[in-house]
């Protein structure tokens, strides 16, 4: 029996209306400078975020560095404990889970990491790396395990003859395939992919993007795809969430976000990205934002974007936090003046 025809995959539902993961008001604060007497402040990396990832979809999570997107991904994958809030996966809140119960949940919920050089243990062979998840859960032994590893390697475009090689003998693209194989071998339902292609060469990126799409179709996977590259996110995602300074600014289906962004930040972000077409580029005029993303230790009051926003009005934007609410059917934006830029 192959992975593809396993009953788990057969029974997996692809319903892009049904929430597979619900993130409810999640915050993640990293305390800094807290001494013995308490006090000190905190990096408010994720600060009250709610959204859902639907069964079988790819939700793109985009934002600039320091916006908290990677932290959010790790909180959802339960690699960092959330400071508060709920992450409901298959009907259970993962946040209070600890120990063995949480470890068991990890079978269903996997992660692909950004840096294919740092995310593989240099002292383990490729076979050991891909086989480790099976070992951890006692899922397959001996011959059966090695068959599974072989199958997953082939599925991910790796030659199983290289089973006994070490990661440093592979190129970046091949290593990322190893990382994907490791995540896939447990046959998970949900995969958090944290910038899986940004460390790769341009000509290699497409290979990995296509592989991820292919795997999604074959195994009915659900992806949370974290990236700063909006072009890739557009290519891969059904829906897109835009994050800024620990909060979600806008969330909608891919088409609406790209064709009709409502939040001024999304609009500026989209206009900042060059298109490989000199004629279009000559016509486009990017909306240049002032300055750079402020510190998450002491984020701006009111709307966090107001310090850089071209359409901010005072005092409302600096005093009232705009709620993330539906503006046009299902298109959510957190802006007092959504759609006015």
């Amino acid at each position: 029996m192959t992975l593809e025809t396993s009953p788990e995959v057969e029974s997996r539902v692809v319903d892009k209306q049904l929430a597979l993961v619900s993130v409810e008001d999640v915050t993640k604060h990293f305390p800094i400078g807290a001494g013995l007497l308490g006090g000190g402040s905190a990096v408010r990396a994720v600060d009250g975020v709610s959204f859902e990832v639907r069964a079988g979809e790819t939700l793109g999570l985009v934002g600039e560095s320091g916006c908290g997107k990677s932290t959010l991904g790790r909180v959802i994958a339960q690699l960092h404990p959330a400071t508060s809030g709920k992450v409901i996966f298959q009907g259970q809140d993962l946040v209070p889970m600890r120990g063995e119960k949480l470890r068991r949940m990890r079978q269903e919920l996997q992660m692909i990491f950004q840096d294919p050089y740092a995310s593989l243990n240099p002292r383990m062979t490729v076979g050991e790396i891909i086989g480790e998840p099976l070992k951890n859960f006692g899922l397959a032994r001996g011959k059966e395990r090695s068959n599974r590893v072989h199958e997953v390697m082939r599925t991910c475009g790796l030659n199983p003859n290289f089973l006994n090689r070490y990661p440093h003998e592979f190129s970046g693209g091949q290593r990322q395939r190893i990382g994907i194989a490791r995540a896939l071998v447990l046959n998970p339902t949900f995969i958090v992919a944290d910038e899986p292609i940004s460390a790769l060469d341009v000509s290699i990126q497409a290979q990995i993007v296509n592989l991820m799409e292919d795997l999604q179709n074959r195994f009915k996977l659900t992806y949370l795809f974290i990236a700063h590259d909006l072009s890739v996110v557009r290519h891969l995602s059904d829906r897109v969430a835009v994050m800024y300074l620990g909060k979600i600014m806008e969330i909608a289906d891919s088409h609406s976000i790209y064709e009709n962004p409502l939040h001024p930040y999304t609009k500026a972000l989209l206009s900042s990205i060059p298109i490989p077409d000199p004629d279009l580029e000559a016509k486009r005029q990017p909306i240049l934002l002032q300055g750079e993303i402020p510190s998450p230790v002491n984020p701006p009051s009111g709307c966090r974007f107001h310090t850089r926003c071209p359409i901010a009005q005072f005092p409302i934007c600096s005093e009232q936090v705009p709620p993330l609410e539906s503006k046009v059917d299902g298109h959510l934006a957190a802006c007092h003046f959504a759609g006015q830029l």
Binding site: V202, V209, D229, R234, H235, L236, L270
Partner: peptide, 9 residues
């Protein structure tokens, strides 16, 4: 081979 911002899904 590059995904483009102006290309659909």
């Amino acid at each position: 081979s590059m995904p483009r911002l102006d290309a659909a899904r």
